[in-house]
């Protein structure tokens, strides 16, 4: 069997004369060029993903079990998934609306204008500015010893009267919006810029006004892009870990923090390899969100020429 396939190139060479020879020789070399990157992706992307999904299927002794996955139905775990979901949905909604407003305000400012390049760079850096540094900034800006708290107490308002909210779940809302808003500016701006002045002219020619332009033309065209950006923002905050890790002083109110607890203590709910099951749950949510994103995005791109 192998001799036949090995002989094939030889036959081609002898029949085809001199030209196919270098081509037939170079082809395997070109394939070899793909090997380093393929190997890298296999070890550091595919293998970790597979491991993250299947470790939940085994107990500590290495026996196959679905025990960890039944833990996903535990009230504590369900609550953390619910917390992650509403936190992500809320901050994505606020970020999407505010970010779209910024994109609207930027309409008509030419791409080379300094305002434009400054906003672009600022949005780029702030969208990446999740992480522990963002937590530090918010603790310095509105923590117990901040100017804000100082001023408000001068007015007789105590921000921390009822609870230590900045270090609990509600404290994540403002920092999350802080990186969602710039991400919205980055992802939604191209959609808004794709609105053509000719559409406005056509609207006028047909007797429409400003209101009919937005109501009948721009909003229907922009809706898929807006929905796609919202889903991207949702996925963004759903997967965020570092800000919460640095801010939330105790407890594991969202899924990434629950994974940290499972990774570091190994005894959450008395189950081994729970981190794997939680990771699987996160991948399932992310896969659903990103599939919807890809479908809507394909529809949104219909209007971009």
């Amino acid at each position: 069997m192998t001799t036949f396939s090995q002989r094939m190139p030889l036959v081609a060479e002898s029949v085809g004369g001199d030209s196919p020879r270098p081509r037939a020789r170079r082809l395997p070399a070109a394939h070899l060029g793909l090997v380093p990157f393929a190997g890298y992706v296999a070890i550091f992307l595919v293998l970790p993903t597979v491991l993250a999904v299947i470790t939940g299927l085994f107990d500590k002794a290495g026996h196959l079990t679905i025990d960890n996955f039944t833990a996903l139905g535990d009230p504590v775990i369900l609550e953390t998934f619910w917390n992650s979901t509403w936190l992500s949905a809320l901050t994505a909604a606020v970020g999407a609306v505010a970010g779209a407003a910024v994109c609207y305000a930027l309409l008509g400012i030419p791409a080379q204008h300094p305002i434009r390049s400054t906003v672009d760079a600022l949005a780029g850096v702030l969208a990446q500015f999740g992480g522990v540094m963002l937590a530090f900034v918010f603790i310095a800006a509105m923590g117990r010893s901040s100017v804000l708290v100082h001023w408000l107490s001068g007015l007789g308002i105590d921000l921390y009267a009822s609870s230590n909210w900045l270090y609990e779940l509600p404290g994540l809302i403002l920092p999350y919006v802080y990186f969602q808003l710039p991400l919205m500016v980055i992802t939604f701006a191209p959609a808004l810029e794709a609105i053509k002045p000719q559409w406005a002219e056509a609207n006028l020619t047909l007797g429409g006004n400003r209101w009919t332009f937005w109501r009948r033309i721009a909003l229907p065209v922009l809706a898929p892009s807006f929905a796609a950006s919202f889903l991207l923002l949702f996925a963004n905050s759903f997967s965020a870990y570092a800000t919460a890790a640095a801010l939330a002083s105790q407890g594991s109110q969202i899924v990434p923090l629950q994974i940290r607890a499972a990774l570091t203590s190994e005894t959450v709910l008395g189950r081994e390899n729970l981190a794997g099951a939680l990771a699987f749950g996160m991948i399932a949510v992310m896969a659903l969100v990103m599939t919807c994103y890809a479908l809507i995005q394909r529809r949104a791109e219909r209007w971009r020429a």
Binding site: L34, T49, L51, T55, V289, M290
Partner: peptide, 28 residues
């Protein structure tokens, strides 16, 4: 012909939270 596949692989980490990647990277 591999361009589509390559793009899919290259964009895959967008939908893979770092915390999930850590779970799989620990044994590696």
């Amino acid at each position: 012909k591999l361009r589509r596949t390559f793009e899919f692989v290259a964009l895959l980490p967008v939908s893979l939270p770092a915390i999930v990647l850590v779970v799989g990277l620990t044994p590696i």
